[in-house]
Computed example of a mutant assay.
Amino acid sequence: MTEHSTGTRKEWLAARLDLLEAEKELTRRSDELARQRQELPWVRIDKEYRFETDEGSASLADLFRGRSQLLVYHFMFGPDYKAGCPSCSAIADGFNGVVVHLENHDVAFTAVSRAPLAKLQSFKQRMGWTFPWASSFGSDFNYDFSVGLTEQQQREGGAEYNYRRESAWGEPAGGANSGAAPFAAMAGTDVATFIRERPGMSAFVLDDGIVYHTYSTYARGLDGLWGMYQWLDRAPKGRNETGAWWRHHDQYSQG
C-alpha cells in the first residue's frame, strides 16, 4: 500500500487550488525577475575575442549572425576532455528545437567551449545535435566570463565563479567535488581537469555596431534551461534523486 497521502477528487481539487495560487505567485515573481534582468546596465565589450566556427574564424559580433541579440551557453568541454560534460550535454539535448524559434525572433544562439573545433564537431555528430557551437580555444573568453580557470588559479585560489571567489583546490578523496568523479570519467578526464571548466550562460546585445554584455548566470541559475528537470519537477516523485544519475543520452542502453 502506498505511503503517500490519498484522498477524494474533491480533496485533491481543494489542495490543487491552493497550490495554483502559489504557482501563480511564482509566475508573477518570475516575470518581475525577467524585468529586472532586462534593466541591468549594459557593459561595453572592447576586447577582441576570436572563435572557430563551422563557417570559419569569427568575432563575437559575427556570432550574432545578423541579429541584435545573442545567447551563449558556456558548455563544459575543455581541450583535454574526450567528450562533453554529461550535465551540459543533458541541457544541450533541448537546444536543437529551440534555436530555430530564437533565430526567427531576432536572437542568435551558440554554445561556446574551449575544446578545439574538431573535437566539438565530432561530439556534436555523435549526439545528433545541429545547434551552432563555437570553439574559444586560445581565447580569454571563458576566463573573462568566469567559466574557466587556469591550473594556477585552481592551485592558489582567487578565481571567481557564480559571483564568489573560490579558495585553493586541494581536495582529498571524498571531498566536496568527489561527486564530479563519475562525470569526469564520462568526459574522459580527471576531476581536477574536469572542474577547471564551468557551466553558465551569457547574453549580449549588438547596438549600433557595439557589443554589450547584458547578463550571465551560473550553477543553479541554469535550472530553468534544463528541460529534463522542468518535467521531473511536475512528475509524481519529482527529481527523486540521491545523486547524479544522468549520462550522455547514447549511453543509457549500456546499463
Rank of each mutant, 00 (worst) to 15 (best):
F131R: 02
W133D: 02
W133Y: 11
A134F: 03
A134H: 11
A134V: 12
S135A: 12
S135P: 10
S136N: 00
F137P: 12
F137L: 03
F141V: 05
F141C: 05
Y143G: 04
S146M: 13
L149K: 06
L149F: 04
T150M: 04
E151Y: 13
E151M: 06
Q152D: 04
R155F: 13
E156W: 10
E156S: 05
G157Q: 01
G158T: 11
A159F: 13
Y161V: 03
Y161C: 04
N162Y: 12
R165D: 02
E166T: 00
E166V: 00
S167K: 08
G170P: 00
E171D: 13
P172K: 05
P172R: 13
A173P: 00
G174P: 15
G175Y: 03
G175N: 05
A176I: 03
A176L: 04
N177D: 13
S178D: 12
S178W: 04
G179M: 01
G179R: 00
G179I: 00
A180H: 14
A180E: 03
A181R: 03
A181K: 07
P182K: 01
P182E: 00
A184R: 01
A185C: 03
A185V: 08
M186K: 08
M186F: 08
M186R: 07
M186P: 07
G188M: 09
T189F: 04
D190M: 14
D190R: 13
A192G: 13
T193E: 11
T193C: 06
T193Y: 08
E197G: 01
P199G: 02
P199Y: 10
M201W: 05
S202T: 07
F204P: 00
V205G: 04
L206E: 03
L206Q: 06
D207W: 12
I210Q: 13
T214L: 04
Y215P: 11
Y215D: 03
T217D: 14
T217V: 15
T217Q: 09
Y218E: 00
A219T: 12
G221K: 00
G221E: 07
L222T: 12
L222W: 06
G224M: 02
L225I: 02
W226L: 05
W226F: 10
W226P: 02
G227C: 13
Y229A: 09
Q230R: 12
Q230H: 09
W231I: 15
W231L: 11
L232E: 07
D233E: 04
R234Y: 06
A235Q: 07
K237P: 01
G238D: 07
R239S: 12
E241R: 14
E241Y: 04
